[in-house]
């Protein structure tokens, strides 16, 4: 495969890794975060410390990235998850920016000039394997009672509580899990670019991840996969229009969101069970419509 195309695929895989976690948090649990680039930064720097300073293998770097992101998320979650909706969102935004600013001023790790010389460990194969594990884990999670509890929180928090769901614990579970995904993505990014700089993990990166999740469709894993691939490739394909590239990118995203307001997949899944569910829902809707029409005509009949 072309070196350039391969590179884009790897970037798409890295984005997807982070997006999978955010999909769990935003798409399935209904919490918005604008600080996930912060967790990517933690993962990137932690893994770089592991592979360069501690001379550990890449796998250990990835593990360290996940663990440190999880640790930060757990602490932040404990403090902020009691906040409702918008307030939680602002708290994550503050966290993301704080991480970036700390790294900007942390000279031992290169400060704002960045940190060159991270080994190029990221390959097509190890990204593919990690993403496959990530997708499988997420799919199994959302189809279990734990995943259903998260979805219940998204749908109706008060009712979820009354149904015996420990809302605080499950929100933190979603937050920590999503941070692990972001941390691992950060590790792959660091070892793909071989150079990391705090600027790479600014607010715009967090926003990009959230855009991909919404673009792909909230509550859909296949939507997130599709979204990550499409939105990583799109800016590259648009290189033809040169400096109008980002304008065209924005226009394309807006157009797709207008034509598919629930995102590309919008709550549907491209899986045997998902397709079956879509078909069953269609059938049920038709049956319900028929039943309603019948009762309506019966009522009209009895009135006349």
């Amino acid at each position: 495969m072309d070196y350039y195309v391969q590179g884009i695929f790897m970037l798409a895989g890295i984005n997807l890794m982070a997006v999978l976690g955010l999909s769990l948090l935003t798409g399935f649990t209904g919490l918005f975060s604008f600080g996930h680039a912060g967790f990517m930064a933690i993962g990137a720097y932690a893994s770089a410390i592991a592979t360069t300073m501690l001379k550990l293998p890449f796998v250990a770097g990835i593990a360290l990235a996940g663990v440190s992101a999880a640790l930060f998320a757990w602490l932040i979650g404990k403090m902020t998850l009691r906040l409702k909706g918008d307030y939680f969102c602002i708290a994550t935004l503050g966290f993301g920016e704080a991480i970036r600013l700390v790294l900007d001023n942390f000279q031992a790790l290169g400060g704002s000039r960045g940190w060159p010389g991270v080994p190029a460990h990221t390959t097509m194969l190890n990204i593919f394997i990690s993403v496959a594990i990530g997708v499988a884990f997420l799919a199994n999670l959302v189809n279990s009672r734990h995943g259903r509890n998260l979805i219940a929180i998204r749908e109706e928090e008060l009712a979820a509580q009354i149904a015996g769901i420990n809302v605080a614990r499950y929100k933190n579970l979603a937050f920590v899990t999503s941070a692990i995904y972001a941390g691992v993505a950060g590790a792959f990014l660091a070892h793909y670019m071989t150079f990391i700089q705090p600027k790479m993990f600014a607010l715009i990166k967090s926003t990009e991840l959230t855009i991909i999740v919404i673009f792909g469709g909230l509550g859909s894993i296949s939507g997130s996969v599709l979204g990550a691939v499409v939105l990583t490739f799109l800016p590259e394909l648009l290189r033809a229009v040169d400096k109008w590239r980002l304008v065209a990118y924005g226009a394309a995203v807006i157009l797709i969101m207008i034509s598919r307001p629930r995102g590309l997949m919008g709550g549907m899944e491209l899986s045997p069970r998902g397709v079956k569910k879509i078909l069953a829902e269609r059938r049920a809707k038709r049956a319900a419509a028929a039943a309603n029409a019948e009762t309506a005509s019966a009522e009209i009949g009895s009135e006349s």
Partner: peptide
């Protein structure tokens, strides 16, 4: 209710 879930999923969730 969990509005966007099916009738079955509503009950299944609460069975947890």
């Amino acid at each position: 209710l969990f509005k966007n879930l099916t009738v079955f999923e509503n009950v299944l969730t609460a069975c947890h």
